[in-house]
Write a protein that binds this DNA or RNA. Structure first.
Lengths: 341, 341
DNA sequence: TATTAGTGTTAAATCGGTTTAGCAAAAGTA
DNA sequence: TACTTTTGCTAAACCGATTTAACACTAATA
């Protein structure tokens, strides 16, 4: 039992496939196809359960109704939730989503973008890893629609949807300072991505504005692979130096935060008595942790829906020349027990 | 700057596109194309950065090198991690993954499968929701390759990869009984899916084998939408009846578990002193929870890789008649603090 | 010398749609 | 009656690859 094609319907009715195509695309009236023929075509199509072959359609029209999503890791709840929001919004526009996890590796994302560029997607939503500038510029050059999320490259004119990382980090650090913490540390990733830099800057700025010293030894970074040992080492260094012990830690991602919390627990250090904790992102884990963890929640629904909307505009043939849309959203600071004095 | 096509290369070299196609597919030797011409073609292809249009290729060959993944929710870490493993394994075979979140709704998965069946994917990996039997049978009838994961329908002959839910649940309940818990409750989903049924059966069986009574009022179910209020209510009922208070709870999914733990905390009930907890699945949250949560971890890497491997076999034209592969994997029981007396 | 075998290459069909350009018949107009 | 317009429909090109069938030409064999 083969799939029915346009031709099958055309032959069965003794009409041309042009006619069938027009009718089924609702362009029957416009092309003055008689009511009766229209009816017959539609009936038979329904009867044979005709489903147009999207590949054939795509080849002719150059549209696939698919968007490519390049993120660090779909298994990371932050990206998982973002992916879900993107899927939802895309679906509203009749689009499907193909996802690729780049593991923050530029070579991987390059290969993935290259693969999907071979006529498989109409546009991209990308969370670009360090060192992927050239790939983004290539998309730009080839006029392939794309939107960046979570981070962007200031030197490349792109549409992007991000959050105000500086402000979020500043506010979180200020919160800690106001709670009376004086030796506030920051645990972040070794990365020159703008979002991470801004988080670090916000932290430093808040310390300065609170009259607290910015000490390099209180700023630890771990690689993007997040080796647990690195994190354990960093936390030990922060917490076990007798006199200058950190009394609060700001984690700049939930992945670091979760591993960091594990380490803190394993060292037998008490939160918030021995050390307060605040973290970017708000995974489920932070709500069932004991104590609950103060979090900087990102508006994932809005990031997702906005990124799809902006991409849809870029892909619509009408406004080709519209300027890149640069959208910065606010985060939601949720105070919980981990930062209470 | 348009993309270069086979024809461009052919014209530039004054040869036929047949030749170019053969050479670039490595079938030059086989077709006795001269060394020199081969070299030229390959060189020019590289120079022009030729990337074959996968849509055109797909139309002709009927292969898309894409698999469709239908799961409940990519934002749920269980499915997120599974999705990631599937992506990894698929990539090894040169396949891409399109994902759809069905929210456990049969209509949604039907629409999604229908959509992807229109020539967009070569096969499916599906975690079928309640009531989706007809869709699966339709795939069967149309001879579209598919593999089920996490659950299956006993009455439909399919390949599937699942875990031994009965045993896992039995062992977990036995563990609680051996720790001395006597009033072990179970919080599950309202669902007739086989995996959930088996989890319930394992629980009951272990109670019986431990000489404990199976009380219907100790088995609570909540809808798949996981209304927080439902869970709170169920937990209250389990924990607040004075004399017959449950002293342990088995959660049958991590989603219920996480929400359940939130409720338990909010009620001020202490784990494991007031109530012990064991849960299916092992999200990050369980490791940073305080106390850490005893978990039934599923072998996601293996489920993912196996499902792709089985699907690859089904899609390979060679062995058409091979029997459905029914694979049941073992879970990994991880004892943590939440079930320690 | 005629036939066969081997070599290197290509024209054309094909996949299943969409789109362009246009045709024949009927109806309307001068 | 002759010309134009409208109506209703279709042939063929096209998208960009793969694949089939075959065509020249040379070399080898009978």
């Amino acid at each position: 039992m083969k799939k029915t094609s346009l031709n099958d319907i055309a032959e069965r009715l003794g009409v041309s496939k042009t006619l069938v195509s027009l009718v089924l695309n609702g362009r029957g009236k416009e092309h003055r196809i008689s009511e009766e023929v229209c009816r017959k075509v539609i009936e038979l199509a329904k009867e044979l359960n005709y489903q147009p072959n999207q590949i054939a359609k795509g080849l002719r029209t150059g549209k696939t109704n698919t968007i490519g999503l390049i993120i660090a890791d779909i298994a990371n709840p932050f990206f998982g939730k973002l992916g879900r929001e993107i899927e939802n919004e895309a679906s509203k526009h009749g689009y499907r989503v193909m996802f690729c996890s780049s593991d923050e590796k530029a070579e991987k994302s390059k290969q993935q973008i290259g693969m999907l560029m071979q006529g498989q997607v109409d546009g991209f939503i990308i969370s670009p890893p360090t060192g992927s500038e050239a790939q983004i510029q290539e998309l730009q050059k080839r006029k392939i629609p794309y939107v960046l999320v979570d981070r962007y490259f200031p030197q490349i004119e792109s549409s992007y949807i991000v959050v105000d990382n500086f402000q979020a980090s500043y506010d979180a650090t200020m919160h800690l300072a106001k709670q009376g913490y004086r030796r506030i540390a920051c645990l972040s990733t070794q990365s020159n991505l703008i979002n991470m830099n801004q988080r670090l800057e916000g932290y430093k700025s808040a310390l300065a504005d609170s009259g607290l010293e910015v000490l390099e030894e209180r700023i630890k970074t771990v690689s993007f692979t997040h080796e647990k040992n690195d994190i354990l080492l960093a936390i030990k260094q922060l917490l076990q130096e007798e006199k200058e012990r950190a009394d609060a830690i700001l984690f700049t991602t939930s992945k670091i935060g979760i591993m960091g919390l594990e380490c803190i627990h394993s060292l037998g250090v008490k939160i918030p008595d021995d050390v307060a904790v605040v973290s970017f992102d708000d995974p489920d884990a932070y709500r069932i942790s004991n104590p609950t963890i103060t979090a900087i929640a990102q508006p994932l629904t809005e990031i997702g829906s906005q990124s799809v909307k902006v991409l849809m505009e870029l892909m619509s043939p009408s406004k080709e020349k519209s300027k890149p849309q640069k959208i910065t959203l606010k985060t939601n600071f949720i105070v919980r027990r981990s930062s209470e004095r």
